[in-house]
């Protein structure tokens, strides 16, 4: 509003009052802005560390180890598989902090075998502690709401009952990563912080059919480490699985083919999608483990494009026979 009397002089008192009002206005605006300020978002969008690789969690002297155990009792088969590979204590040292990357993708019951089996998870946690692990954490970035996924799959109760901690995929745990030579994982958010706080990483995946990639096994399990709008990678599913296999060098992977999802994966939904394939596979070569897993789905490894791609990229050996895996039959 224009001043009616522009020549009017302002008194010192009036000046101080007006300045104080303006000051209060600025202050209140600042406080309001402070409350609306989204710290996490600004952190994730601005703090772009130039990370090109995850730590290597593999145990060098255990390279190329693999075991296949036939049986329907998961506790028995995983124990035999690990024993065949030298025992869990040859992978886990006293004081190790262990991270178990499970598949908790869907909020579905354990009976549907779309997620990591809680009985198997409990046994692996128990074995890690028995080998002297300082701590065991269980994590995944599920497709559905994380809290429901961990709870309804039975993974949360299984983990807690054995003294393991569940790490939910809080946004602050993700860091932008560009893997060397990667075309897809470029400046992409990865569930990084739980990984750098671990000494050993074990992937535990169920064996499933997958509508896009043909199968979901141990390599596809690492998809749960990705954040952001990762569904865009479904357009190039084979290459994203290959890049994940190159990115993660685990201590060990476990493929649970006790009950496999033969059709309508990865969600399934009906017990009729499942088949008792009665096989537990453990190994340090994720490509070899998946190559054998494919045969349980009635496929050849060559039919799954990502297995060949991962082999070519040097993530492992798709000819699992070359690893001379011990095959134990408990049936």
């Amino acid at each position: 509003m224009p001043d009616k009397n522009p020549d009017k002089e302002t008194s010192r008192r009036e000046f101080i009052i007006r300045s104080s009002k303006a000051g209060l206005l600025v202050l209140s605006t600042g406080i309001t802005g402070y409350f609306f300020y989204d710290r996490n978002n600004s952190v994730s969008s601005l703090k772009k560390e130039s990370i090109t690789a995850l730590p290597d969690f593999s145990v060098k002297e255990k390279a190329g180890k693999m075991a296949i155990v036939k049986g329907d009792d998961r506790v028995k088969t995983i124990n035999l598989a690990l024993k065949s590979m030298g025992g869990i204590e040859t992978f886990i040292n006293k004081g190790d902090r262990v991270l178990l990357k499970v598949n908790a993708a869907f909020a579905s019951p354990p009976v549907l075998s779309a997620t990591t089996n809680p009985v198997l998870l409990k046994e692996v946690i128990r074995l890690c502690y028995a080998a002297g692990a300082l701590s065991v954490v269980v994590t995944d970035n599920p497709i559905n709401d994380p809290m429901s996924c961990f709870s309804l799959t039975g993974i949360e109760s299984a983990a807690k009952s054995c003294g393991a901690k569940i790490i939910l995929p809080d946004e602050s745990l993700f860091t932008q990563i560009s893997i060397e030579g990667g075309n897809l994982i470029k400046d992409w958010p990865v569930l990084y912080k739980p990984l750098i706080n671990a000494d050993k990483v074990i992937g535990i995946a169920p064996l499933k059919d997958h509508h896009r990639s043909g199968a979901s096994m141990t390599m596809k399990n690492w998809y749960g480490l990705l954040g952001g709008r990762r569904n865009i990678f479904h357009q190039d599913i084979n290459n994203i699985i290959k890049e994940l296999a190159v990115m993660v060098k685990p201590t060990l992977v476990i493929l649970d083919g006790t009950t496999s999802m033969m059709s309508n994966g990865p969600t399934g939904g009906s017990l009729s999608d499942l088949k008792q394939t009665n096989t537990m596979i453990a190994g340090t070569d994720q490509v070899a483990v998946d190559a054998y897993g494919a045969t349980l789905l009635g496929k050849r490894a060559q039919e799954l494009a990502y297995i060949e791609k991962a082999h070519t990229a040097g993530a492992g050996n798709m000819d699992y026979r070359l690893l001379n895996p011990e095959i134990i039959n408990t049936l």
Partner: peptide, 11 residues
Amino acid sequence: LSEKINGKAEL
């Protein structure tokens, strides 16, 4: 949709 059914969304 893929946030619910992941790889089956394409179908």
